[in-house]
Amino acid sequence: MTGTIETPVVAERLVKRFGSFTAVDDVSFRIARGEIVGFLGPNGAGKSTIIRMLCGLLRPSEGRARVAGFDVAREPERVRENIGYMSQKFSLYTDLTVAENLRFFGGIYRVPRAVLPERMGFAVEMAGLRHRENMLVSTLAGGWKQRLALGCAILHRPPILFLDEPTSGVDPESRRRFWDLIHDLSADGVTVLVSTHYMDEAEYCNRVALIDRGRLIEMASPSALKQHTLGGDLLVVECEGMGTAMAALHEAPGVRDVAAFGNSIHILVESAGAALAALPDYLAGCGVRVTRIEQIKPTIEDIFVQMIGAEARAEGPRP
């Protein structure tokens, strides 16, 4: 019944305050059945706080949310029957074996005894833990632990999954495998909300929500986001003396925005052609030796950085 709700997750003007600090500020969104939505944002943006409100772990200070058709503040028990949750912190019992953890969560979720072995088998298979059922969880490597946590969270076949940074601290191969699992679940009609601070994982989602300082800045599909006009062309600059270069670029003619991306600088310019012609000499004049400068396609991260910058400029400095 609840599994067939067309918008299993609805958040309306959610606010969460901790004392005088507003961790989540007026956030509204809807997630359709079977959708994979990614929450993207830096640490402290408020991703976990939103997810924890949706799970009924935190009471919203304002606004409301419905999950599987139930109000999260008023009927948290009903909500919990319909969701699977992986918290940001690994939270299985490390003193218990793989099988003991699965049996425990199966029991708590009241998975019928008749189907439990099959469900446990599925979870073990999915996590790639066959023949490791009797290993203590504390002895498992990160990727396995993460997949086992997912296995525990879906033992009761919830129609909705909340995964809070499930791939953090896991090697790239395990991350890819994890996303394959999420796609398999979504294909079965499971609605998935997953947070991450790996911007490249946005590509795996049907839609991504960009979150910064408690606000939902934009929510759209990755391709729609990329088509979002940055208001200019994007160049990458690699050089020696990043600090000097960034300061100089801020002052350079035709440059709209400057952002550091690891060892390189991304700049937004009015026209790629003009900038590519003028900037090497300009930077050389400032004492910066450029090793690479060329036009690139914007990534989600570029869009994100640019959007946050635009917001901040529109509002003036925030405390």
Binding site: L57, I83, Y85, I108
Partner: peptide, 14 residues
């Protein structure tokens, strides 16, 4: 402290 309480609390256990 170890976080398992949060995992338990999202189950329908009373």
């Amino acid at each position: 402290e170890i976080g398992t309480l949060e995992q338990i609390m999202v189950t329908p256990i009373r």
